[in-house]
Design a protein around this nucleic acid. Structure first.
Lengths: 250, 250
DNA sequence: TGGCTCTGAAAGAATATGATTGATTGTGTA
DNA sequence: TACACAATCAATCATATTCTTTCAGAGCCA
């Protein structure tokens, strides 16, 4: 059993049971007591757990993070990485628009030290933005109950008052001819407007959105810089040959 | 059983029962009396409990904390009752404005079956509103980090697009001459505008706000129906004699 | 081969535990 | 109040468990 596998097993057991005894881990991993002890000490140094006499407990910091969001999801890990990369395009002092949606929300922690001003139509973004002490404006509008996204004429109107350095949008599909698309026409309208109000537009998506088409078209591919994860080089070349879209791979 | 597990078990039992005997803990943990004694002493050093002859009681510090939360929960009970009463003024199909703040948030559960449309500047209201499947519009604007209230010119502007049947406002003070007031001028402006956009305005407050004055004046007393809790009859009479305010007692 | 890391085993130190004992406290009775 | 008895306590010691340190062997790579 690889060291990392043991680490993962230990942490999963911990998340499940809150505390584990060394003997339990010896049984679960068929490693020696010494190895488990070393693992526990290493993980403690990494601040992943707290040692206690006879075993370990989950670290308070981890518990807190888990309650915020279930990071065990591999998909989420990918999203976070992608978001981190997207956030690297943001410069100190930028005024940016963050689209509602789970992808852009992951960008927030990486904006903390950039002194940005954020405008968003995502109500769910607010908590995290406040936590990171980021100056934030919310658009007005109708609240879509499932996604908590603000949409509608009020959103369009309030959005029109701003000008952005950059905007970051999520989409449900990107396609060579149809361009970017999303299921809800009202959300599409918000995204479209945000793009026209920005000096530079970024669409953040994972490769699974490639060649997908949703109900409501937003804009052609070349209106935004596309930031994708897990995208093969030949597909990027294809995209870039056929259109003027710039593709950034995370 | 790990030491920490015992500690936790002991503390949980204590919270539940307020006092425990050593023998109970011996039975519950199948540890020896000596061990339990040691545990209790350790926990006492950590200020988690108070030793008494034969067992332990919850520490004074903890009791104090609990009594504070009790107090706040008693306070909350009062607030809920007040909110319930305020909500009884809402009629089926009304379009209403709910001010940001902890008082109006309590009204939400009682609006569930009234098929109302709600406009609010309180980001914290959104979750509960969605939970009760209430059609909701959020005003735009700057998010105040402490209260999550939306304020500023954007808020004023978006608010101006609506007309309300009723609006429900929280205040920090009401005073015979000065009228209603609140600490933040920007919030005051929002409240003032909401009142002018409503056919009927309700201010919801508890008696502790009587004769209190905050930095920013909102409007005179008689511009709203005042809904108060725990208010003595003579005070109500006084108010009603001196002004044209209508006072409703919950 | 030599250096590196990971692992398991072992020994002695440190800690936790349970039992015992005599002291202290609480309780009931006169 | 004083006294006796029971319950509870702190202190101590022996044992058991866990921890740290150390060393040597296995596997791996250049």
């Amino acid at each position: 059993m690889l060291t990392n596998e043991r680490y993962e097993l230990i942490l999963n057991l911990l998340i499940e049971k809150k505390t584990v005894k060394i003997q339990e881990l010896v049984d679960a991993t068929s490693a020696s007591e010494s190895t488990i002890r070393r693992d526990l000490n290493d993980l403690e140094d990494l601040n992943k757990l707290d040692r206690i006499h006879g075993g370990a407990t989950i670290s308070e910091r981890i518990t807190k993070e888990l309650s915020i969001s279930d990071k065990s999801s591999k998909n989420l890990q990918e999203k976070i990485q992608l978001a981190n990369y997207a956030a690297s395009f943001v410069q100190e002092g930028d005024c940016i628009f963050l689209d509602a949606g789970t992808t852009t929300i992951q960008m927030i922690p990486y904006l903390k030290d950039k002194k940005v001003t954020v405008v968003t139509n995502g109500v769910t973004h607010v908590d995290l933005l406040m936590e990171h002490e980021i100056t934030t404006y919310l658009t007005g509008g109708y609240i879509k109950s499932r996604t908590r996204a603000l949409v509608g004429p009020q959103t369009i109107q309030t959005l029109g008052d701003y000008q952005f350095d950059k905007c970051f949008l999520g989409v449900n599909g990107f396609h060579l001819e149809i361009g970017y698309s999303t299921p809800d026409p009202e959300e599409a309208a918000v995204k479209r407007l945000a793009a026209t109000l920005s000096r530079k537009t970024y669409v953040v998506a994972d490769h699974s959105k490639y060649n997908k088409v949703s109900f409501a078209a937003i804009m052609p591919l070349d209106k935004a810089v596309l930031i994708v994860s897990d995208f093969e080089k030949q597909a990027i070349n294809l995209l870039e040959q056929k259109t003027t879209v710039k593709v950034e791979k995370s």
